[in-house]
Structure formats: structure tokens, C-alpha cells
Amino acid sequence: MSIAAANSTGAARRNDEILDPGSLMRIKSLELRAKIVVQGFLHGLHRSPYHGFSVEFSEYRQYSPGDDPRYLDWKLYARSDRHYIKRFEDETNLRCNLVLDSSRSMSYGSLPYNKAEYAATLAATLAYFLSLQHDAVGLVRFDERIEDILPPQYRPGQLRRLMLALERPAAGRGTDVSEPLRQFAEYVSRRGIVVILSDCLANLDGLETALGTLRSRGQDVILFQILDPAETKFEFTESVLFEDLETGRDMYVDPQQVRAGYLQKLEAHNQSVRAACDKLGIEYVAMLTDQPVDAALHDFLQARMRRGRRVTRRAV
């Protein structure tokens, strides 16, 4: 094993230790959490199988007639005698809206932390990562409707404000994904990326329409469905009164009786979310809260990359 390989495994192990969501969530500061995830991610990136992936590469495009010659990279032309258009700035001036579900169902967690904390960490990580790339990041929190909006900007203090907004406790109510997304679609005007972080445990009527509206307004959408392992496995044993976090409704449930039905229904629900996303060309990522956060970052970049390829292909 080469030294580099040994270094890589050591770093990865260290990274894994840190990026274990259990230990990561013990860190109190959200910003620090994000930093650790991103830095660990970037740190491993150079020695990872994703070596060679860079924003810069995708930003050069071969000149084609009709392009503005102002954007020709003359240095590259000097070196390679080929005309490349430097679309660097245009491409990187990305506007990303993090749309975070802060309804009460998000405050459920069978682990020491709940879905909301996990989602906030994920959002902070993405925000930090994007701000490192000088992208404008904004935040939208919603439950039944849009609660607060931090418009995407790239300027000093934006990241700090965003972190504070994420740390603010959510006094959310029930979840309705469709209506806030519809409102948001009306609000957002410029192209950009929309990252939706939600458990999607809500009525799905109109979800497809809302997502479709978003897409039609030129937004690239990534949907992270964040679920707790207890929700996906439903491994309760005792008959107890189940209380709905959102409505406060009580229900006496014998888990042994209802488990199969529950899993089936949940699966069907998730399937319908996924189907809607696929239909609209939306990246759908299902995440469990016991998964490392950087996996999400990885998925995000993958999605971006796919998107980039798709765009490139389309451009070609």
C-alpha cells in the first residue's frame, strides 16, 4: 500500500469518525458542524475516486461561432491555440435556495437527535460548501406555509445569518409540502438550484404540480427526503397510544398488528414522491438520519454533476 493510499485510508477513517452523524450532532455549533463536514469532504476529495472533478473544467467551453469573443480565454488560447470560452463566472454565480421543512413531524427522532437537527446540519453543510464556492445561498423555511425567507445572496455575513436562521427553533405546525412550494415557485424568479429538505410526510396532492411549477420556472430541484430509521422500520413492540406530533391526535396502536400495513403504506407514499420527481426530472435523494451527512453532500454534487453533464450534452 502506498503512502498516499495509507494517508487516504487514515484520513477517511478519521473523517468517518467525525462524520458519524451521532458524534457530529454532539457538536453544538451548526457552522462548525458544516465546516467539519465540508472540509473533511474536500480533504478526502483530492484523494478520492472523484479526483479530477472540478468546477473549472466544466466552465470552459469550446468557442462556437456566435459566442461573445470577450469571454475567450486568451491565456489558454496562447497555450493550446484553441478557443475556449471562459464561462467561469457565469456558471459559478449560482443561486441556491435551501427549502427546509420545519413542521412538527420533523422534530421526531428515535436517535439522540431528530430529523430537524439533521436537516439543519445538512442545510448548513450545503450552505457552507456553496459559500466556499462564492455561490449565493438563501434559505426558506416552511411548515404549512412559508415561514421565513432569507433571499440568496453572496456577501459577507450571509452565511452567518443563514446559520442563525437555521438554529432558530421551529415552532412549526403540520406539514403541507405542496402549498409552500407553490408559493415559493411564485416568489422565486431567477434561475437557480432549489434544495428541498423535508420528510414529505404529508398529503401529496398537488406536490407534483408545485414541483412542476418550480421546474418550469427554470429551477433545478433536488429533493432530500429525510426520514428517521424508526419511521422506515417501525420496530415498536408494545401496544401504546401513539400521539401525532403535528395534530396531537391519539391513536391506540398494536404495532404487531399494523406494522405490515404501515410499511406498505409508507413505501407506497415514498414511491409516489419518487415517481413525481422522476417524472419532472427532479433529483430525489432518500436519507435516513443515521447516514453520514457528507453522503448527502456527495449526492448533491453528483446530482450537480449529472445536471452539468446533461446541460453540456444539451449544449453539444
Binding site: 421526531y108 406539514t175 401513539f242 406530533l245
Partner: peptide, 8 residues
């Protein structure tokens, strides 16, 4: 007892 759950 009671168990709170995200959604019923």
C-alpha cells in the same frame, strides 16, 4: 404509555 410519532 404514550409514544409520540411523527405522523399517524
Amino acid at each position: 404509555g404514550r409514544v409520540t410519532f411523527s405522523s399517524l
